[in-house]
């Protein structure tokens, strides 16, 4: 599968990463190598293999509906870049 600059631009935009032209070029090449490597899986015969979404032989990991302490508000807001009263403060997101 080919990875062109447009694809890298698109993915970068989805991840909100701004890339310079030379970075775009370099990353396109690197990503192409990675994808090509993963494409080798296509050579395997998997017609008898069930689709897998998880590699661990685990299922039904559940917890009881029992409340426990939450973080103290001071701790929670410690990592907020900006705050107002007990809220996280962000640039306005709608008009």
């Amino acid at each position: 599968m080919g990875i062109d600059k447009e694809t890298v631009k698109y993915v970068a935009n989805l991840a909100r990463i701004e890339l310079r032209d030379e970075e775009l070029k370099r990353l396109s090449e690197q990503l192409k190598q990675i994808i090509d490597f993963i494409d080798k899986l296509k050579l395997l015969d998997i017609k008898d293999v069930e689709p897998t979404s998880h590699i661990l032989p685990m299922s039904n990991v559940l917890r009881d509906d029992q409340p426990r302490e939450s973080l103290p508000i001071s701790k929670t807001l410690e990592c907020a870049p900006a705050k107002e009263e007990n809220f996280f403060l962000v640039p306005k997101v709608i008009e």
Partner: peptide, 30 residues
């Protein structure tokens, strides 16, 4: 395990899991 009670002071019913800190492990409520 954060409480879901309605109308509490903002950001008092949060923890590293529901705040999405790295390395935490969500476990589904039965």
């Amino acid at each position: 395990g954060c409480s879901t009670e309605f109308g509490k002071e903002p950001n008092t019913q949060v923890c590293p899991i529901c705040l999405g800190f790295p390395g935490v492990l969500p476990v589904l409520n039965r």
